[in-house]
Design a protein around this nucleic acid. Structure first.
Length: 339
DNA sequence: CTACCTGAGATGCGTCTGGT
DNA sequence: ACCAGACGCATCTCAGGTAG
């Protein structure tokens, strides 16, 4: 296809080549790696593709990733900087994630000042302390990553990174389920951080797809007390929206229209939007197809749920508990009444 | 039957583009 | 001038399939 495109006058990468087997791939990788500095553009690696459309079709896709093509990246660039502090962020599920605040450093074409440390096991494994001199790299050339400390450059006044005992946002107790890596805020819907994340998730593209409702707006709606639960979104009036920072009549009207539009959605999107733990895009689709209606899904017991494809005891319990919660039932009923 | 593999879900970050 | 949304990857967990 590349050859054909070239004859039609399209610009095609002149470096592509046909090679045989893993050894051919490795040789090409080494050769292009050696020439990397001379190339008139930046590259972060090479892509190997099966050179046969019939085979490509047979191999197919895994999610969105083709099984007939794979990237082989060059080692990431690394830089040294200072770990200034570690803050704990609260996600939609209450998970507390340690995030490294770094002395800004230029790595692989980008200034990095934050990086996730994933969880406490990872912090211990990497043996990093606040104040440490650390190695930073851009994993896969996008996500900043703290590789680890430079032990010989550790100052005397470093501080240990410790998980707070209370949620930094709502001060509820922080719990860790035995043998799990993640610590969680036990506040649930009482925790503003979790509520805000739940609203953002509800509005997100793959859920209700409410165009124009992003981080900043959710933040403002919540802080002003206009939206405490997702159903409040559908009670918003244009005048209230227009009164917010950086919003005018036009923006307000657009948001109201987007909210209106989101009312015509599918069951699978709605189920995903509810934000039940362990229920992502795919599981929501499975449940929607298996039960066909919200009523039957809400009425399902745990045995019935486990009969659905890819649903085991853990997911079944999550779903069951979610619909058993009176607060959730009320929210769903409100949403239906609001359209 | 156990051990391992694969796929999906959740979370996090910086840049770029398009819209207001 | 600013915001929303898309992209790409690592980590851990859960579910289900398969090799030994």
């Amino acid at each position: 296809m590349l050859e054909q495109l070239k004859t039609w006058g399209f610009r095609v990468c002149p470096e592509s080549a046909l090679v045989q087997g893993a050894q051919g791939c490795a040789a090409y990788y080494a050769a292009i790696g050696a020439r990397r500095p001379e190339l008139p553009y930046e590259i972060d690696g090479v892509v190997y593709k099966v050179n046969d459309f019939a085979l490509q079709q047979q191999l197919g896709f895994v999610s969105r990733a083709p099984r007939w093509a794979t990237a082989h990246k060059f080692p990431a660039q690394e830089e040294i900087t200072k770990l200034l502090d570690v803050e704990f962020q609260v996600g939609r599920t209450g998970a507390l994630t340690p995030v490294a605040r770094l002395e800004p450093v230029f790595v692989g074409g980008v200034t990095v000042s934050n990086a996730t440390l994933h969880n406490m096991d990872e912090v211990i494994r990497k043996d990093v302390r606040i104040g440490d001199t650390v190695i930073v790299r851009r994993a896969g050339d996008v996500i900043p990553e703290v590789v680890g400390p430079v032990p010989e450059r550790r100052p005397d006044d470093t501080r240990e990174i410790t998980m707070p005992e209370q949620c930094p946002v709502c001060h509820s107790e922080v719990q860790r389920i035995a043998d799990e890596a993640v610590y969680r805020c036990s506040g649930g819907l009482f925790c503003p951080a979790q509520v805000k994340e739940a609203i953002k998730h509800f509005a997100s593209r793959k859920a209700m797809n409410i165009d124009g409702l992003g981080d900043k707006l959710v933040e403002q709606f919540f802080e002003q007390g206009l939206v405490k639960h997702v159903d409040d979104l559908y009670r918003l009036e244009a005048a209230q929206v227009a009164a917010l920072e950086r919003m005018g009549e036009k923006s307000a009207e657009n948001l109201i229209n987007a909210l209106e539009k989101s009312k015509s959605t599918t069951l699978e999107r709605f189920v995903f939007a509810l934000g039940v733990r362990e229920v992502g895009e795919t599981t929501a689709k499975t449940l929607a197809r298996y039960y066909g209606s919200l009523e039957s899904l809400m009425a399902a017991d745990q045995d019935s749920l486990q009969a659905a494809p890819d649903v085991g005891p853990v997911v079944a319990e999550r779903v069951f508990q979610f619909f058993a919660e009176p607060h959730n039932q009320q929210t769903i009923q409100n949403l239906r009444e609001l359209g």
